[in-house]
Write a protein that binds this DNA or RNA. Structure first.
Lengths: 348, 348
DNA sequence: CTGAAAGCGCTTACAG
DNA sequence: CTGAAAGCGCTTACAG
C-alpha cells in the first residue's frame, strides 16, 4: 500500500479538501450522509473517493466539541464479575451501535473508585447519555445526572421515585412463579433469602414472596432472612441464618442465583441434600445454571432483551428531551430443573 | 443547593475565570495538578474554590482536541458473553483508571458489526490505546492499528508474529499440568478437544498437549479433534467426534472450560459417566466451575491479573512510543476437582 | 507569575 | 450548490 498515510499526522478534512480541490466545509457536507444532498452528486462522489484514497478517518472528538454530541454513552455496572451483567451490557451495546453510539463501561465493583467518581468521569467525557445498572431505591446518582441535565435510564434495578425511565424484570411476578411452583409440589413451609432491601430487586422480590404466600388458598408458613449482598458468600451466610431460625422449612426461594448457590453451600455444610431435604429456587437463570448440581430451578429473566430495552429508552430520551418517562417491565418465566421436588411425606 | 448551575449551559473555564477575576489560561493552569505550581498558591486556591462554587466540570473532549490525548482506551472483546472476559475486563479497567483512562468496550460477539468496523469506531473516538482480546494468530487488526500508529496490546490471545506486547497464559505449560495429572492417575489413552487453530490458545494448547504426551516416560495413545469455536455446543460436537474416532480413550483434556462443559453434554448423551468412564479436564477455571456436576478439574488462569498486565503494558507503550515489545506469560496452575479420577481397572 | 492569542478538527449559520 | 468565517472548550508556547 504505497498510499499509506504518513505515520505521524492523521489525515484531516482539510487534507481531503485540498486533495479534492474544494473547501473543507464542502468535504464535511459530502462526508456526512445527513448533509450529503447539499453537495452536487458528482462532487460528493469525488470527495468520497478522495477521502478513501487518503485513508481519511473522521475525528469524533472534534465533531463532538462542535456539535455538543459525543456519540458516547456511559454504562455504570455494580460489578462486572456478576455474570448477569454481561448479557445486559451486550444488549445495551447492540442497540446503541445501531444509532452510532459507542459505550464507555465503568465498573463500580470491588476495588473500584466510588460510583460518584466514576459517574463524574463519564460526564467529563461528555457522554450523551447514561445507563445505570447500579441504582439503589434511593439513588443519589440519578439526581446528579438530572442536575447536570444528562439523559439517564436505569436497567435491572429501579429507584423508588420513578424520576427516569427504567427497564426491569417484573420482580413480584417472578416470585409468584417461584412460590406457586413450590406450593404446587406440596411445600407448605417456605423460606426466602432476600436481597439487600436498598435495591429494588431485593425489596420487590421480598414483597413478591410475601404477596405470593398470602395469595395461596392453602395456609403457609413463611420465613425470610436478608443477605447483605448479591454474592454466593452472602447467600451461604443468610441461608445459614434461615435454617437456624426455621429448621422446619422444606424449600428456599432465593432472590437471585448467586444467593441460591450460596444456599447450596450452606446445605452441603449442614449435610442437607437438595432437593431431597430442601428445594431451592433461584432468580435470573444465569448462564450455566443448568449445569450446577443439582441443576437450578430459576426464574428466567431475558437480560439481553432488558439491556436492549434500556438502550431503546435512552435513545428515545436522547432524541427528545421531553420523551415520556416509562418503566418497561419484562415478564419472567420459571425454568424448572432438578433443585426442586416434592417434600418427603414425613416432612409434610 | 441554590448555587446549582443553570441547567442549560454547562459551566466552562471562562465562567470560572470571570468569577475568580483572572484569565482563562490561569484557571486552566490552576485546575491541572501538573501545572498548578505555575500559579501563585493563594490565587490557585481561590480559583479552586471558584470552580467548586460554580460546580465546574472539566470537558475532556475539548482538552483532548487540544492535547491530542483522549484519556480513552478501547477494548475489543470477541464475546462479552463468555465469562472469562469479565475478569479480564475488570483487571484492565482497574489498572487503567489508576492513570486516568476510561475504557470504551466494543463487543465483537454474535450479531455485532465486524471487528474491523468496531476498531475503526474506536479509532474515530481517538482512543489513546487499544487492548485486543480478539487476536487471531494472523491478525489484520494489529496491522491496522500499527498503520494508524495507535498503541495496541493483546490479551489472552497472542498473534504469531510478536509485533506488539501481549499478556497471555502459558498455554503449553497449562496442558502439561493437565496431562501430567491424568497420567499420574493412570490414564494412558487421552483425547484432546482443541480450540480453533487460528487462535493462539487453540494452537498452543494443542502443541502443549502433544508435547506433554511425548514427554511422558510411559508410552501413551493420544487423539485430538478441533472444535470450531470456544462454545459449549462446539465442544459437544467435537467431543462426539472424538469419542467416535477413539472410543478407547479414558480421559479428555479440553482446550477450555466451555468445551469441557460441551464434553459433559456429549458424555451424558452417550450414557457415559464422568469421571467413572471418562475423566475431563478444562482450561481457564471460569467462575462456577466448582459447582457444575461433576466439579470440573481445570487449569486455572488468573484472568484479572492478566487484564492488569495487559493494561500495564499498554500504559507503558502509551507513555513511551519506543517502549520495548514484551510478552508477559502468566503461569497457570491446576485445580483438581471431581471430574478426574483414576481409570477403572478394566479400562487400563 | 499572569495574560493574550493561536489552534486542535470539526460543523454550521451566513453569504453569495 | 459552494466558500469563508466563526466557534465549540480547552491548553500552551509566547510575551511581558
Amino acid at each position: 500500500m504505497p498510499r499509506s498515510p504518513s505515520k505521524t499526522r492523521p489525515i484531516t478534512i482539510k487534507d481531503v479538501a485540498q486533495f479534492a480541490g474544494v473547501h473543507a466545509s464542502t468535504v464535511s457536507r459530502a462526508l456526512n450522509p445527513a448533509t450529503r444532498s447539499m453537495v452536487a452528486q458528482d462532487l460528493a462522489a469525488s470527495i468520497l473517493r478522495a477521502a478513501q484514497e487518503l485513508g481519511y478517518q473522521p475525528d469524533h472528538l472534534a465533531a463532538s466539541l462542535r456539535t455538543g454530541r459525543s456519540l458516547l454513552v456511559g454504562v455504570l455496572l455494580p460489578d462486572i464479575a456478576n455474570p448477569v451483567f454481561a448479557p445486559i451490557l451486550s444488549g445495551i451495546t447492540e442497540r446503541l451501535i445501531e444509532d452510532g453510539y459507542s459505550t464507555i463501561v465503568a465498573d463500580a465493583g470491588p476495588g473500584a473508585p466510588s460510583a460518584t467518581t466514576l459517574l463524574d468521569g463519564l460526564i467529563a467525557h461528555r457522554v450523551d447519555g447514561l445507563v445505570l445498572a447500579t441504582a439503589t431505591r434511593d439513588d443519589a446518582l440519578v439526581g446528579r445526572c438530572l442536575e447536570r441535565n444528562v439523559p439517564v435510564v436505569l436497567v435491572n434495578r429501579a429507584e423508588a421515585q420513578a424520576r427516569v425511565s427504567a427497564a426491569v424484570s417484573d420482580d413480584m411476578r417472578g416470585m409468584q412463579l417461584a412460590v406457586d411452583h413450590l406450593v404446587g409440589l406440596g411445600h407448605r413451609r417456605i423460606g426466602h433469602i432476600a436481597g439487600p432491601p436498598t435495591l429494588s430487586t431485593g425489596l420487590l422480590r421480598l414483597r413478591g414472596f410475601e404477596a405470593a404466600i398470602r395469595d395461596q388458598n392453602t395456609p403457609l408458613e413463611s420465613f425470610s432472612q436478608s443477605a447483605t449482598a448479591y454474592s454466593r458468600e452472602a447467600g451461604a451466610e443468610a441461608a445459614g441464618r434461615l435454617l437456624t431460625a426455621a429448621p422446619q422449612i422444606t424449600a428456599i426461594v432465593a432472590a437471585n442465583d448467586l444467593l441460591a448457590l450460596g444456599a447450596y453451600d450452606a446445605l452441603r455444610e449442614r449435610g442437607l441434600r437438595c432437593p431431597e431435604d430442601i428445594s431451592v429456587v433461584g432468580h435470573n437463570d444465569m448462564p450455566l445454571m443448568d449445569l450446577v448440581a443439582p441443576a437450578l430451578t430459576s426464574v428466567r429473566i431475558e437480560h439481553r432483551a432488558m439491556g436492549r430495552e434500556a438502550a431503546e429508552l435512552l435513545v428515545q430520551r436522547m432524541r427528545r428531551a421531553d420523551a415520556s418517562t416509562r418503566m418497561v417491565m419484562l415478564t419472567p418465566r420459571l425454568v424448572v430443573r432438578g433443585s426442586t421436588a416434592a417434600p418427603r411425606p414425613e416432612q409434610r
